[in-house]
Computed example of a mutant assay.
Amino acid sequence: MSTEVLTTGWEPRVPAGDTITRRFVLAYTARIAAMADRTGGRRKWVEGARMADLRSPFGYDNAVVVTRPLAEAEWPGVITAADAFFPSSRWWVVLSVFPTPDLTRHGLRRVGHPPLMLRPPGPLPPPDARLDVRPVTDTATLADFQAVLVAAYGLAEVGVPAIADLALARTLLHLRVGYADGVPVATAGAAVHHGIVEVDWVATLPTARRRGFGTAITAAVVDVAPELPSVLLASDDGQEIYRRLGYLDLFRATLWEHPAS
């Protein structure tokens, strides 16, 4: 008598395209690994998780991404491996699309449950004439991208994110800056892996919000491969912006952070 083994969808041999969620997890890990390789960072693969240290003062650049459902008994090993991998002075995060146990006993703090959102391929709205969207191609546009991102996220006292690197903009990432009346006011970026457009770094200066610029700059990076589905992790404030662009709510992921010591 044989027992049929049913897949969970997260075994190593399951194709990347099995589900949109699997594509997102693999795309996210591929992107942070490539960023580490191109910027002199470090990466480590452990059973059930992928880690990348971009040596960034901004914790969201230094990530542990859970790649399959973990039993509660497996979590201490993953966190111990992360503790050994990241320097004690580094701020880093854990991202899981699966439910997690309480990790506060391991020195982590819950950041929240960002919604994972999907936009199927389809027509995009016409460009907003009020926003001049330009690709990051040189030091000037990179400086504008960095300045908006730092100001919008309140990172002035933290430092420069790892994203501010022309080696990434020219080889891996599609970064865009939006200008209103010649002033940089919005940013967004995307990477294309595993058949999806993974969108990140969407930001608008507080003084330029509620004018549709977030929607316009997001549409600009989705347009790098409009024939593919687009996936992103949203903030609660950003959900409605993405819904207007045709994104659908899938479920909420879980984000923890390990502050620098």
Rank of each mutant, 00 (worst) to 15 (best):
V160H: 00
L175W: 01
P135M: 09
R176N: 08
M117T: 01
G159S: 12
P127C: 06
A156I: 07
P184F: 14
V133Y: 10
V158E: 13
A186F: 13
R119C: 08
A162G: 15
D132G: 00
A164Q: 00
A162H: 02
V158I: 08
V185Y: 08
P123L: 14
V183S: 07
L131H: 10
V177M: 10
L175Y: 08
G159M: 07
V148A: 08
A180M: 04
L173K: 01
A162D: 00
Q146F: 00
D165M: 11
V148D: 06
A152T: 13
P135F: 05
A143L: 08
A151R: 15
V185E: 10
V160L: 12
T141W: 11
D138L: 04
I163V: 15
L118C: 04
Y153V: 02
P135K: 06
V148I: 03
R130A: 15
L149H: 15
A156K: 14
P114S: 09
L142F: 07
A180G: 00
L124P: 07
L124N: 14
H174V: 06
L116K: 03
G178T: 07
L131A: 07
T171S: 14
L166V: 03
P125D: 15
G154Q: 12
L131D: 05
A167I: 01
T139W: 00
E157D: 15
A162R: 04
H113T: 14
